[in-house]
């Protein structure tokens, strides 16, 4: 009798809680709210902030971090971390730049760049799962190796004059409307949706689909949640980890293509500290460094929080140093909220 009564109360408590969003949804909601608050605040401080032009600029600026954050999120959900994405981004750019210089057309050269990124990720995955090196150390090593290779291949000099086609991915737009004025000067009515933003949306949709709807996504969550349980249940843990790191490397390569294309120059020392922005985006978006928790949508919100903060603070004339401080505080704050959530 007593047991039955306890059962009923337990049931009432859980059904009562259904009205409130649960754990990760709550975190995502609070992150989204933060994003909206930031946008509202910056609209007050700077009148130019809330304009179509600036909105598209933020989209463009955030796309590189956003693409990195998608791969980072997958790795973080497995309970790992990928510190190498900033360097891999540079190396992928160098590979693409060098093969273009060797006479290969832009599209296959960029595909090779992405493949070079994937190869770095594959090495990360193999070192982590087969050699049993912790992800932090393995990807720290790869961070130095990839950067070193990129600098060695180019002699630390940028590769420029890559042709107009190389700049298309980073600078092209959809639906750009330009009107010729009577005085002979063109007037931009709508600057167009930048290709990188479209690429970000497509990559994010693909990432979310893989994580939520496919077996590999389920396995990524299970490995991060309880690696031993996943192994005993028949999940191929090594293959799952290798997959996640390879995806992260390939996305770092893709982000490298976008960034170098935007500059129409390959800079072997680009992307320093980008991994930290990507990690921050994932963590702000609710991913747990302990593994098993995270989402692409959350990480996209996180990436845009960082992007909007940077952009808004720039427009308000805040120095780059102060920006670092503020973003640091936001990261700690987001993780603190997560801690409180887990304690409840």
């Amino acid at each position: 009798m007593g047991e039955e009564k306890n059962f009923v109360t337990a049931k009432q408590v859980t059904s009562g809680m259904r009205f409130l969003p649960t754990g990760s949804a709550l975190h995502k909601l609070s992150a989204l709210l933060t994003l909206l608050l930031l946008i509202a605040a910056f609209s007050f401080t700077s009148p130019a902030f809330l304009s179509v032009n600036n909105g598209l600029t933020v989209l463009l600026q955030t796309s590189v971090i956003g693409i990195l954050a998608i791969g980072m999120t997958m790795v973080i959900i497995t309970g790992g971390i990928d510190l190498s994405v900033g360097s891999v981004l540079a190396l992928a750019g160098v590979v693409a730049g060098l093969v273009i210089k060797a006479g290969v057309p832009v599209a296959p050269a960029m595909a090779l760049g992405v493949l070079a990124g994937a190869a770095c990720g594959l090495v990360n995955g193999i070192v982590i799962s087969k050699m049993r090196i912790t992800p932090f150390v393995a990807t720290l090593g790869m961070m130095m190796i990839a950067r070193g290779v990129a600098l060695q291949l180019t002699g630390a000099a940028p590769i420029s004059r890559l042709g107009e086609a190389f700049g298309l991915l980073g600078n092209g737009t959809f639906f750009r409307i330009v009107e010729m004025q009577p005085n002979g000067f063109p007037k931009v009515i709508f600057p167009g949706i930048p290709y990188p933003a479209v690429l970000l949306v497509l990559t994010a949709l693909l990432g979310a689909y893989l994580l939520q709807k496919r077996q590999i996504g389920r396995h990524i969550f299970s490995v991060g949640s309880n690696e031993e349980a996943a192994r005993l249940s028949g999940v191929n843990v090594d293959r799952t980890k290798i997959w996640a790191y390879t995806a992260s490397g390939a996305l770092a390569g893709l982000a490298g293509m976008v960034l170098m294309s935007r500059l129409v120059t390959v800079q072997p020392n680009e992307g320093v500290m980008y991994e930290l922005d990507a990690i921050a985006a994932s963590v702000i978006g609710g991913a747990s460094l302990m593994g098993g928790v995270g989402s692409i949508s959350g990480s996209m919100i996180g990436a845009f929080i960082i992007g909007v903060l940077r952009n808004g603070l720039n427009m308000a004339g805040t120095s780059a140093f102060i920006q670092q401080i503020i973003i640091g505080i936001v990261v700690i704050g987001a993780v603190y909220i997560d801690q409180i959530r887990n304690r409840n």
């Binding site: 969550f221 949640s225 349980a229 996943a230 249940s233 028949g234 098993g292």
Partner: peptide
């Protein structure tokens, strides 16, 4: 028990 704590009952039952 070898259960993945973050996944629901169905995901655990069919894991792998």
């Amino acid at each position: 028990l070898a259960l993945a704590n973050h996944l629901d009952a169905a995901a655990n039952l069919f894991l792998g």
